[in-house]
């Protein structure tokens, strides 16, 4: 049976892991590779390294860190942040990343999804999308709008329509990050996650809002997510991956 995945996200700022709240205010919580190795040993199914300062500094993600992570980890990992084009994707994959996450770049230059999928296989191409609840309109019928540049810039695009288009163009997986719940720890955006998951036939990762194991159970069941991403729960709130998985298993969610 295909198992539900627990993914741990590390926001990397200047080589250190930080955790932000609604994209504002960040606290230092450790060395990314050391932390990732610890989460790997603790039962995380996958890791995401997000270089949150790379884009603003117009550079690719930290390839030395990617190479160190590849050496240390025996589970798949994704890198995001700072990927500017297919050449950056190639560099990250050659450094040892399994997948590359594209967010604002995919919205601004959607052809990069196709180029990446053709060159490296769609399983390497993760669409990261930040979505925000808005009043439903003819332009945004789902009531969720895509925002870019770290949530600062609305695009006028419907999240569900964008998910479908991105998959048609080559995205092999979608990480759905709900801006409204990110960092708030009161649960994932179940409706948004379910809308996206039901609209596409690629795996969907729910992101933004995890504060306790019940939140993961809810999004994996009612949100139809294939995987749930956590950050502060394991970085600063005292939960372990093993503990979260035991709670999920007790709830009847199939996990490793």
């Amino acid at each position: 049976m295909l198992l539900k995945r627990l993914i741990v996200c590390l926001d990397v700022r200047n080589g250190r892991v930080t955790k932000g709240v609604r994209f504002k205010g960040n606290v230092d919580v450790g060395d990314p590779v050391d932390m990732a190795a610890r989460y790997c040993a603790d039962g995380a199914d996958e890791m995401v390294f997000y270089d949150i300062t790379a884009s603003a500094e117009h550079r690719c993600c930290d390839l030395d860190m990617v190479a160190r992570a590849a050496r240390a980890l025996s589970i798949p990992f994704t890198v995001g942040g700072g990927i500017r084009d297919a050449a950056d994707m190639r560099a990250a994959l050659l450094a040892g990343a399994d997948k590359v996450s594209l967010n604002s770049l995919a919205v601004l230059h959607p052809e990069v999804l196709t180029v990446g999928a053709k060159a490296f296989g769609r399983q390497c191409v993760v669409l990261g999308m930040d979505a925000k609840r808005v009043p439903a309109s003819s332009a945004i019928p789902s009531g969720y709008e895509i925002v870019i540049r770290g949530g600062r810039e609305p695009t006028g695009r419907d999240a569900v329509a964008w998910a479908k288009e991105a998959v048609d163009r080559g995205a092999g997986e979608i990480c759905v990050n709900a801006i409204d719940t990110d960092g708030v720890r009161e649960g994932y955006e179940l409706t948004l996650t379910r809308l996206i998951s039901d609209a596409v036939r690629v795996p969907v990762i729910a992101s933004g809002g995890a504060g306790k194991p019940e939140h993961l159970t809810a999004v994996l069941r009612e949100g139809h997510a294939d995987a749930a991403l956590v950050a502060s729960m394991v970085h600063t709130m005292g939960y372990t991956c093993a503990g979260i998985k035991a709670a999920l298993a007790a709830d009847g969610i199939p996990v490793r």
Binding site: M1, L3, G172, R201
Partner: peptide, 11 residues
Amino acid sequence: SVKIPHMGWNT
């Protein structure tokens, strides 16, 4: 109900 490719952890 399943997604293709088969991606993730399976037994």
